[in-house]
């Protein structure tokens, strides 16, 4: 475990039992997250990317301690999250917060947004009296660009999606969270608002030294905000590297395909890799070998029988691919 890191997720797996009909076959176990390990440093943004169903959100919820993993541990500042009792677990919430894609669902629909921020302060005793709390609320709203007293008395449904997302950020700031898991925070917003929210998140990181686990499928946003990127496929991390490395020189065929799928406005800009066909494989029908082999254009014999491990191939760079490892040890990356 890296002592410098804020959050360390070690060998976390989570399986779900599939629904079973009255006379249907036995319930099958589906591994949504399989042996995932990563860490997030202070003031760092780690992006978690992958297509729908790759286990990004489940990983985020486990990292936050909202969902118990089937196996593996999560440490926040060297404290095992799943060994905390009820009261200690609730105290740990002060440090780690979540921002959801559905900004309306994150707020109590019947409570004015200002009161919702104030409640956090009073539960944790973060500000003395009522007037001090109110000042903190006004301050927090001001920080996220919702200054002026008019917003705080409104109900969530009276605000726009972007404004609600700002409220969620203001609430996390008010409780002085150090780590924020952002689960697709901008996917439901207009592009212009997306940029505002992303910039706000980056600004808050500078000011308050926040760390983010940024879950997204939008690679353009990820490139803008994150320091490192972890690519997930079918519940496993297939590649993890710094943002610059991933975008300049993706090692894993899946990463290459993901990047190739990003729409570009430049006509003469050749795609970096092959475009993928097919669908995400049914996670329940896990066979031996590499999970990606069915869709991989470079699939070899070894891929069918041996599941590649996530191995270090360079400075802070890990890849789970037989070919990438070989290519790298032979000197010179593939691309």
């Amino acid at each position: 475990m890296n002592p410098a890191s804020l959050l360390t997720v070690t060998a976390v797996s989570r399986s779900f039992a599939s629904a079973r009909g009255l006379f249907g076959p036995k319930a099958r176990m589906i591994k949504a997250v399989d042996d995932v390990t990563f860490s997030i440093g202070r003031k760092e943004t780690l992006a978690l990317v992958g297509e729908s169903g790759s286990g990004k959100s489940t990983t985020g919820r486990i990292a936050l301690g909202l969902m118990k993993p089937t196996s593996g541990t999560v440490h926040y500042e060297n404290e095992d999250l799943f060994k905390l009792g009820g009261a200690a677990w609730r105290q740990s919430r002060r440090n780690m917060q979540m921002i959801f894609q559905d900004s309306a669902g994150a707020l109590d629909p019947r409570m004015p947004v200002g009161a919702q921020i104030e409640e956090v302060l009073s539960v944790y005793g973060l500000a003395g009296g009522k007037s001090a709390r109110h000042n903190r609320v006004v301050d927090a709203l001001d920080r996220v660009g919702l200054g002026g007293a008019s917003i705080e008395h409104r109900l969530p449904r009276e605000l726009s999606g972007g404004q609600r997302q700002r409220i969620a950020i203001a609430r996390a700031l008010a409780m002085q969270a150090k780590l924020i898991v952002c689960d697709e925070p901008v996917s439901a917003l207009d592009v212009s608002v997306q940029a505002q929210i992303v910039n706000l998140l980056m600004e808050m990181q500078q000011v308050f030294g926040l760390s983010y686990l940024f879950i997204s499928h939008d690679l353009r946003v990820v490139r803008h905000i994150s320091h490192r990127v972890a690519v997930m496929y079918l519940g496993r991390i297939v590649e993890i590297a710094s943002t610059a490395d991933i975008f300049k020189n993706p090692h894993h065929p899946y990463t290459q395909a993901l990047l190739a799928a990003v729409p570009t406005t430049r006509r003469h800009h050749p795609s970096a890799g092959p475009l993928l066909g097919g669908e995400l494989q049914d996670p329940a029908s896990a066979s031996s070998g590499c999970r990606f082999q069915g869709r991989c254009p470079f699939s070899r014999d070894i891929c069918r029988w041996v599941e590649p491990a996530l191995v270090e191939v360079g400075q802070g760079r890990q890849v789970a691919c037989h070919l990438a490892v070989r290519a790298d040890t032979e000197g010179g990356g593939r691309a």
Binding site: L64, L66, R93, G105, A106, P109
Partner: peptide
């Protein structure tokens, strides 16, 4: 979701 969000607020 707001219940889960509140739970996550501790």
């Amino acid at each position: 979701g707001y219940v889960e969000a509140l739970r996550n607020l501790g």
